[in-house]
Amino acid sequence: MKTNLKIGDKIYKIEILEIDNNIIKVAVDDEEYFFKQDGEDIILLEENEIFSLFGFDEEEKNLHYIGEEKVIKAPISGTISKVFVKNEQKIRKGDIISILFSMKMENEIIAESSGIVKKLKIKEGDTVNKGDILIILE
């Protein structure tokens, strides 16, 4: 769900997205907050809790902060219906990475830069959210 919320003179872009495991993501402009339902309580997750819930290991957690790695991110949320690349494959700008089924449309996700696939983080059937890393390139 997306909407705009006006508070005083400022308008905030709000997006609420339900993710698996009773997790809700609330994005306010560019800031993301994750909440978990715990019984009748809604709890704001701390950063290390977010990493452990989504299965990041220590190495990947560090990668999250590294700006120099080239990554291909999901431009929209959806389900991966096909993957066309594999680890250590050389890809060029414009190559199709995957087909992402979203909003009842078929979406070809293409690479915007060239490189070698260092880590492929998706497989067919995966659900991804906008901004999720699909591929790490070197």
Binding site: P75, M105, E106, N107, E108, I109, I110, A111, E112
Partner: peptide, 12 residues
């Protein structure tokens, strides 16, 4: 009806 999009950083 089938709409197909090609998307990089934006819809191409």
């Amino acid at each position: 009806i089938l709409t197909e999009n090609i998307i990089g950083e934006d819809v191409k």
